[in-house]
């Protein structure tokens, strides 16, 4: 049973990482990167490494996604100021 769930998670990880690489919009690639981290933390939990799973979920899916979004917002603000 658990092998099917793990296979689905792996397929989701591959699809979201492809989206993160090939997407034109930066925001969607950041969000799909967060999804990759979430899937990887689930895989760590399946592979009996709960310590790493907690760390990955807190840092990879939580904090780094937020920091990337904030950085993207700041960069776009700078671009519009230059055009004016």
């Amino acid at each position: 049973m658990i092998i099917y769930v793990a296979t689905i998670v792996v397929i989701v990880i591959i699809i979201t990482s492809l989206i993160a690489v090939f997407s034109k919009k930066l925001l969607s690639s950041i969000i799909s990167m967060g999804l990759v981290s979430l899937g990887v933390s689930g895989l760590f939990f399946f592979l009996q490494a709960p310590d790493v799973a907690i760390t990955e979920a807190a840092i990879g899916a939580g904090l780094s996604t937020a920091i990337f979004v904030i950085a993207l917002k700041k960069v776009k603000k700078g671009e519009t100021k230059d055009e004016e």
Binding site: P50, D51, I54, T55
Partner: peptide, 14 residues
Amino acid sequence: TPGGGFPGGAVIAS
């Protein structure tokens, strides 16, 4: 239990 200083600090920061 599983966990430790780094994940705990990251959870607090989030």
